[in-house]
């Protein structure tokens, strides 16, 4: 491996590492602000997902991989999204009682 190739391989890793460290600091800072429910949770989740996306795309080499690999990754993401969405469909609608429901 030439020095140039070696350099080009490590540069994006370094940039991603810096980005992850910055986002970690942002996580800590954001935890000290109270945005109210549910925004505090959503902000923390957004930062965490951003970090996960960086790891998957760069450290796990999904960026630049074949469409099949990307499809496999998205299958997992969609699977988790289904789990969260349908579970939340329970929690988010429990507060709606029959009396509150719009009358037909």
């Amino acid at each position: 491996m030439s020095e140039h190739e070696h350099h080009s391989l490590w540069k994006p890793y370094g940039q991603v590492l810096v980005a992850l460290l910055v986002l970690t600091v942002v996580t800590v800072v954001a935890a000290n602000f109270h945005f109210g429910t549910p925004w505090s949770d959503l902000v923390a989740l957004f930062i965490a997902l951003s970090k996960a996306a960086l790891v998957v795309a760069f450290f796990m080499h999904v960026k630049g991989s074949t469409r099949l690999i990307k499809f496999a990754v998205w299958t997992g993401v969609i699977g988790i999204a289904i789990f969260f969405a349908l579970t939340l469909s329970d929690y988010a609608t429990r507060v709606i009682t029959y009396v509150d429901a719009p009358r037909m």
Partner: peptide, 18 residues
């Protein structure tokens, strides 16, 4: 098969809408 698990929770205080 991944979308139907809540039918095990019909009587477990799951939301009626879910």
């Amino acid at each position: 098969g991944f979308l139907v698990w809540g039918h095990h929770l019909f009587l477990s205080s799951q939301s009626a809408y879910a």
